[in-house]
Design a protein around this nucleic acid. Structure first.
Length: 539
RNA sequence: GCGCCUCUAGCUCAACGGCAGAGCAACGGACUCUUAAUCCGCAGGUUGGGGGUUCGAAUCCCCCGGGGCGCACCA
């Protein structure tokens, strides 16, 4: 019904309709999207376009193919800061960016031009600025390039006194309230290009994220790690327990999985002789979305031959603290209003110790299963009858203890049952040499001394396969194969003692930018597609 | 997937059972140093969609859709 209405309005929009804006929308978008109308931003501003045409000379066809920029805005501010009020430098610069404010005063006009470096004021004067009448007709959001002398106005604002200027792009849509920008979170995530201009913190966070990745690389390179890239299309989903995205390769006529972890391939590179190797890349997990989970996310994974998990604790705390120093300038931070000190060394404690501290319960992996099940149930969690004591203990830790840990702390020595790729602890049979760095109540990563014995690895894979066959859907029922034979074959060629670390880059970025939601540090977070179902095509 | 909250002009928000409004931007105009410029004027709405209750619904109820938060799964 609504689309029919939309068509009707679209059809007669040339006459009689007293809401031309709506009619225009229907005509423009070929039908009326349900629900998402406002969020799609509506139609381009018709009045703006008309004015531009009437103004003459300012249409898009007049836009040059390049524009010579001599100075970013910030460099003008830095280079001519010494000018006193009313002083003219005699130096000509050209700048380019978006017009964010425009104050018109008859025969003079002041605009604020913003580029990626910052802002600079443009000072236009009827007697010296070409096409002055057009200049004052610019819209907020238009891109222009302008050149002229660097001056400081009588009122003390450093400016480029515009002589020549060119329209570089017109903003047919507005960028929201000039004071308050846009605050609607859906618009912010769906139209990041708008959010970036409207909210300075968005840009800051994405830049910080890029810095984090760069510094991570630089620090690892400096330590002799080699950066590699391993497949994203996997024949068998492995290296973690998560439901994968499934895709299909036509030429092979076979399903493939977007990787849930690069782990197995990276260890095969260690078998091949890469003693220090890492990859920074995207992982895909077909799980729920939350303020801390995006279906695609970025991790660092590194493998280090001849080292064990204690070596990785030192590497991890040094790496994270170093990146904090690089990006934030200090290791003493505040996160969500609470102090957070990332200065090494970080506390090391076993999972069992931490459970004891948080709950007062003295339990471990040898505690009778029924007792563990009862404790877990008391947290409100559901208890799967198939879970053994190790799984129950780990679940209990996550429910009762992890969220209470502010950290940073290395939570050490996990049950073997929940760690199919980690090597058995040198001090005991039921635990593995594994740790998770926990900060602000959540895991920042995961690391262990790697299991190197092919026979034991096969046995653990078989256990997983048995659980999978029994309907435990840790990979999802649609996954047919869970034993990675290629990896087992590689282990049979010999994996030396090796330590491996996974670190969530998004989580780290959240921490270092004081963001509560993972979407804040992802340029285009995964959202439900716009124009949801129910809208017949061709409307 | 479940629970709670939310959706009003391009943006930011009022009106909370009784005439849908303001600021910003946009559009027309005035103004020779502005700083969120100021001033005059004009326009902009199926109040997310549909149904119901009511003399009367943006407001109350139901269904649907989008979004946020929490829980669950996961990192």
């Amino acid at each position: 019904m609504p689309p029919v209405q939309g068509r009707a309005r679209g059809a007669d929009h040339d006459r009689g309709d007293r809401r031309p804006g709506r009619a225009h929308l229907a005509a423009h978008r070929g039908g009326r999207p349900r629900g998402a109308v406002a969020h799609a931003g509506g139609p381009p501003d018709r009045l703006r376009a008309q004015r531009r045409q009437r103004g003459g000379g300012g249409t898009l066809s007049d836009v040059p193919y390049r524009y010579e920029v001599t100075h970013p805005a910030a460099e003008v501010a830095a280079g001519w800061g010494h000018l006193i009020d009313g002083e003219e430098s005699g130096d000509t610069v050209s700048v380019a960016g978006r017009v964010m404010l425009l104050r018109k005063g008859g025969k003079v006009a002041f605009g604020q031009l913003r580029d990626s470096s910052g802002s600079i004021q443009l000072f236009a004067d009827e007697s010296t600025t070409v096409r002055f009448a057009e200049f004052v007709r610019l819209n907020l959001g238009d891109w222009i390039g302008a050149s002229g002398e660097v001056v400081r106005t009588k009122r003390g604002e450093l400016s480029v006194k515009v002589k020549e200027w060119r329209l570089l792009a017109e903003a047919r849509r507005s960028f929201g309230d000039k004071r308050r920008g846009i605050t609607d979170v859906e618009t912010r995530y769906r139209q990041r290009e708008v959010d970036l201009w409207a909210n300075e913190s968005t840009r800051r966070k994405l830049v910080a994220r890029g810095d984090i990745v760069r510094r991570t690389r630089e620090r690892l390179w400096a330590q002799g790690f080699v950066e590699v890239e391993t497949p994203i299309l996997h024949p068998v989903p492995g290296g973690a327990e998560a439901r994968p995205f499934i895709t299909h390769h036509n030429a092979f006529d076979t399903d493939m999985y977007l990787r849930i972890a690069p782990e197995l391939y990276l260890k095969r590179l260690v078998v091949g002789g890469f003693e220090k190797v890492f990859e920074i890349g995207r992982l895909f997990r077909n799980e729920g979305i939350s303020p801390r989970h995006n279906p695609e996310f970025t991790t660092l994974e590194l493998y280090w031959a001849y080292a064990d998990y204690t070596d990785l604790m030192v590497l991890t705390e040094d790496l994270v603290a170093g990146i904090a120093l690089d990006v934030v300038g200090t290791t003493v931070l505040e996160y969500q209003g609470r102090p957070l000190d990332l200065t090494p060394p970080w506390r090391r404690a076993t999972m069992v110790e931490l459970i004891g501290e948080a709950t007062g319960n003295n339990v471990n992996v040898r505690t009778p299963r029924d007792e563990l099940a009862q404790l877990l149930a008391s947290t409100g969690a559901t208890v799967d009858p198939a879970w053994g004591p190790g799984k129950l203990l780990a679940e209990y830790y996550e429910k009762s203890t992890e969220t209470e840990l502010w950290g940073p702390v290395f939570v050490c020595d996990f049950p073997q049952e929940v760690s199919p790729l980690a090597r058995r602890h040198r001090d005991g049979p039921d635990l593995v040499e594994r740790f998770e760095p926990v900060v602000a109540g959540r895991e920042l990563g995961n690391a262990f001394s790697e299991l190197i014995d092919p026979d034991e690895q096969r046995a653990r894979f078989n256990e997983q396969a048995a659980r999978h066959a029994a309907g435990d859907d840790e990979f999802g029922a649609e996954v047919t194969e869970v034993v990675d034979e290629e990896y087992l074959r590689a282990l049979e060629y010999g994996l030396p003692p090796t330590a491996g670390l996974g670190l969530g880059i998004d989580r780290l970025a959240m921490l270092l930018t004081d963001s509560a939601n993972i979407r804040e540090v992802i340029a285009f977070p995964t959202l439900r597609p716009e124009r949801p179902g129910g809208e017949p095509p061709g409307g």
